[in-house]
Structures are given as C-alpha cells and as structure tokens.
C-alpha cells in the first residue's frame, strides 16, 4: 500500500515496523492452521490425535515462538495506536521501543519456561 498505511514507519524505526509486519504475518499463518485443526472437533478422535502433537518438543518450541510474535505484535501495536491517537504522548520513542522489546523477551522467557517445563521434567517426549 501507499505510504499512508505505514505512516509511522519512518518515525519509530524500520526495525519496529519490520518486526511488526513479520510477527503479524506469522501469527495470521498460525491462525489459519489453527482454525483447521480446531475444526476437527467434529471428529473427536482425530482432534485428540492431532492435538497430542502440540505437546511434542518441536511444537512446544514453535509455541514459544508464537508467544514471542504475539506479545511483540500486541505491545508494539499498542505503541503504534498511542502514537496515532495521542500524538506527542510518547516523548522518547526509541526508549519506548526498547522497553517493549525487553518486556517481550522477558514475557517470552517466563512463558517459554512454563511451556517447556513438562519436557524438562520428562512428562512428554
């Protein structure tokens, strides 16, 4: 789209924008897949079998990635909304971006620990 749709990109840094775009895209791809796997609820046995896959280590790592993408996109989205609706409300855009990124990393580590814990305690394979 023309620059109107991405007006904020020059102001707050190309990285924030690129990462917002990549995470938005990946979360959408997961949503599309997730709608299909949940639709198997009409076939309970197949649903449970497919769903058991989410417990394996690779899928758990993938879920940690999804957590990172979702949290970053959500927090950065709020930042974009603040800048657009309340111009001037964010004084130091750079440090706000670094705070958001650090908070994303922190929440991903905490959430990742909880998601991966069953793997370390040996209750999944």
């Amino acid at each position: 789209m023309s620059p109107e749709s991405t007006l904020y990109k020059g102001k707050t840094g190309q990285w924030a924008f690129v990462l917002h775009r990549v995470t938005g895209f990946l979360v959408l791809m997961f949503l599309l897949l997730h709608i299909v796997d949940v639709s198997m609820l009409s076939f309970p046995r197949i649903y449970n079998e497919i769903h058991a896959l989410y417990g394996n280590v690779l899928m758990r790592l993938f879920e940690v990635g999804l957590l990172f993408g979702l949290v970053y996109h959500a927090l950065n989205g709020l930042r974009v909304i603040m800048i657009d609706f309340f111009p001037g409300s964010i004084k130091n855009e750079k440090s706000v971006f670094y705070s958001i990124f650090s908070l994303t990393i922190l929440l991903t580590i905490i959430g990742g620990f909880i998601i991966l814990r069953p793997f370390f305690t040996g209750s999944v394979h």
């Binding site: 999804l66 957590l67 998601i115």
Partner: peptide, 19 residues
Amino acid sequence: ALIHFSLTHIFHDVTTTTV
C-alpha cells in the same frame, strides 16, 4: 488473543486441551 493464549498454553498445559 493474550487471554486465549494464556489459558491454553500457560494456565493449562497444551496437552490437556482435549475435546
């Protein structure tokens, strides 16, 4: 989205989200 993710991955383990 954040409530949904927390419920199905953080407060419950994903393997318990069965039918």
